[in-house]
């Protein structure tokens, strides 16, 4: 029993560390990538996964060691999971609509022709 408890602590600790590491890497991506769209790639995916890791680890810790099942953490996981990609989509769309240019090494732009046609 002692062994299992120790191993569980180790796994939960590693999960938190991993989540924090993913979050840090996605922040690094925000600095490094050249334009809005690429940055929102980094912000939507990696940051979502990092936050999810930390929330799941906190949930497990409360459940196993403090014997308290926290429904709020579960709800938080679901909400982050649903709203992460939507926020990324809306950021990208608003940026494109207000004319933020793509990175100069971008090679294809199908949306440009389509929006021109729409405006007539």
């Amino acid at each position: 029993m002692e062994m299992i408890s120790k191993a569980g602590e180790l796994i939960i600790g590693l999960m938190v560390l991993f989540g924090a590491l993913i979050g840090a890497l996605s922040a690094f991506g925000l600095i490094r990538l050249p334009d809005v769209y690429l940055r929102s790639h980094a912000a939507t995916k990696s940051a979502t996964l990092g936050v999810l890791f930390i929330l799941v680890a906190a949930f497990l810790y409360f459940m196993i060691y403090l014997e308290h099942t926290s429904a709020k953490l579960l709800l938080g996981i679901v909400f982050v999971f649903i709203t992460g990609p939507v926020a990324g989509h809306l950021n990208g769309r608003a940026a494109y609509r207000s004319g933020v240019p793509l990175w100069n090494k971008s090679i294809q732009d199908d949306l440009k022709d389509a929006s021109k046609e729409e405006q007539g």
């Binding site: 993913i22 890497l25 996605s26 690094f28 991506g29 490094r32 990538l33 050249p34 334009d35 769209y37 690429l38 790639h41 980094a42 995916k45 990696s46 979502t48 996964l49 999810l52 999971f81 793509l102 990175w103 090494k105 971008s106 090679i107 294809q108 732009d109 199908d110 949306l111 440009k112 389509a114």
Partner: peptide, 29 residues
């Protein structure tokens, strides 16, 4: 959904930490 979230995060992180930015972005329909 969950599987894609994992795979995509690791792909994006792999692209970010690579010393040279070897990406060619674009928009397709």
């Amino acid at each position: 959904f969950i599987k894609e979230l994992f795979v995509s995060s690791f792909v994006v992180i792999g692209l970010i930490v690579r010393p040279k930015l070897a990406i060619r972005p674009g928009i397709f329909a």
